[in-house]
């Protein structure tokens, strides 16, 4: 299967749950204030079982490290073209041009690039390395009720690593949040939730066929897992609903969402609406992927407010997130 121009190497799927000691991390974003309460550090893990064409982090979908380019930083050294074993890089007026079809992610070009115009997205890091970086802002977490959020990709892909990170953070008294699609075997999520204070749980569509058409997977496992998640009184849940024009922004879809969420009970604290935006567009070009939503127009602020009003009218707490 090839979607968004994302290729999987043979045998890569077997690596999907690497091991519990080292994971592939593509960013640790400190001073993150949109992924849970307070000032947080968000750990972004690579790998996602879903493949949503509107994804704002296209470099997060593939599990293993890949290259990400910034043309503006290119100083035309030509070193990448010289070293590429696949002959995937050529020079046009000194600027490198990458034939992404030929790229096999050996990452050699990023190693020799003198100006970080080609960089690697995704780095193998140990639990201790990640926690050491996260702990640097502990003082801010304590003051603001913040902590660590694990995001992705979907942290349930590298679930052993995710579990180990959460356990370590819990041991250190750091508040933990999990930003997830919810797509995993229940046993996996169940275990992880024992070390999670808050789940940011994505719902993308209430209709399974439509969900599968867009994301590549059906929604039953996701909704079933959510029904089980809300039975854990100690785990708070924020539902996240990305509003994608033409896909799930119709009023009847939001009605269906509300009907479902109302049955979930008190651990669900709010619904965050995440309006579609195109800030991730450049990253598609930068990682050699096709952006299917290039011509899609984001919803107007007024329309988003209207949809927010619709959810509020069901007595549900809702906000517009980022």
């Amino acid at each position: 299967m090839q979607r968004n121009g994302i290729k999987m190497k043979e045998g890569e799927k077997d690596l999907l749950s690497l091991n519990d000691d080292r994971g592939v991390v593509f960013n640790i974003q400190r001073f993150s204030i949109h992924d849970g309460p307070g000032i947080r550090s968000t750990v972004f893990l690579k790998g996602c079982a879903l493949n949503c064409p509107w994804c704002q982090n296209p470099e997060s979908i593939r599990l293993l490290p890949e290259i990400i380019t910034r043309d503006i930083k290119c100083i035309k050294s030509g070193k990448c073209a010289d070293i590429c074993p696949q002959g995937a890089i050529s020079l046009a007026e000194g600027l490198r041009v990458i034939d992404w079809e030929k790229c096999d992610y050996c990452l050699k070009c990023a190693e020799v690039c003198p100006s970080k115009s080609i960089e690697v997205a995704g780095e193998h890091k140990s639990v201790d390395e990640v926690i050491e970086e996260v702990e640097k802002d502990s003082s801010y977490y304590r003051r603001t009720g913040g902590g660590m959020t694990i995001s992705g990709g979907d942290p349930l892909v590298q679930w052993r690593f995710t579990l180990a990170l959460l356990q370590k953070a819990r041991q250190k008294g750091i508040h933990t949040a999990l930003d997830t699609t919810g797509y995993a075997r229940w046993e996996v999520l169940d275990d992880i939730l024992n070390y999670t204070n808050l789940v940011l749980y994505d719902i993308k569509h209430m209709d399974s066929a439509k969900h599968k058409e867009a994301t590549g997977v059906p929604n039953e496992p996701i909704l079933d897992n959510l029904l089980k998640t809300v039975k854990k009184p100690e785990v708070k849940v924020w539902i996240r609903y990305p509003i994608i024009p033409g896909f799930n922004d119709q009023e009847e879809e939001l009605e269906k969402l509300c009907e479902f969420v109302i049955t979930l009970g008190p651990t669900v604290e709010k619904i965050s609406l995440l309006p579609f935006h195109k800030f991730g567009e450049l990253k598609y070009t930068a990682t050699g992927k096709v952006y299917a939503y290039r011509d899609c127009t984001p919803l107007s602020d007024e329309r988003v407010e209207e949809l927010k009003g619709l959810i509020s009218s069901h007595g549900l707490h809702t906000e517009i997130g980022k």
């Binding site: 974003q29 400190r30 001073f31 000032i39 640097k136 802002d137 801010y140």
Partner: peptide, 9 residues
């Protein structure tokens, strides 16, 4: 490159 808390620290 790591945000305001890193700068302050």
């Amino acid at each position: 490159k790591k945000g305001p808390t890193a700068v302050l620290n």
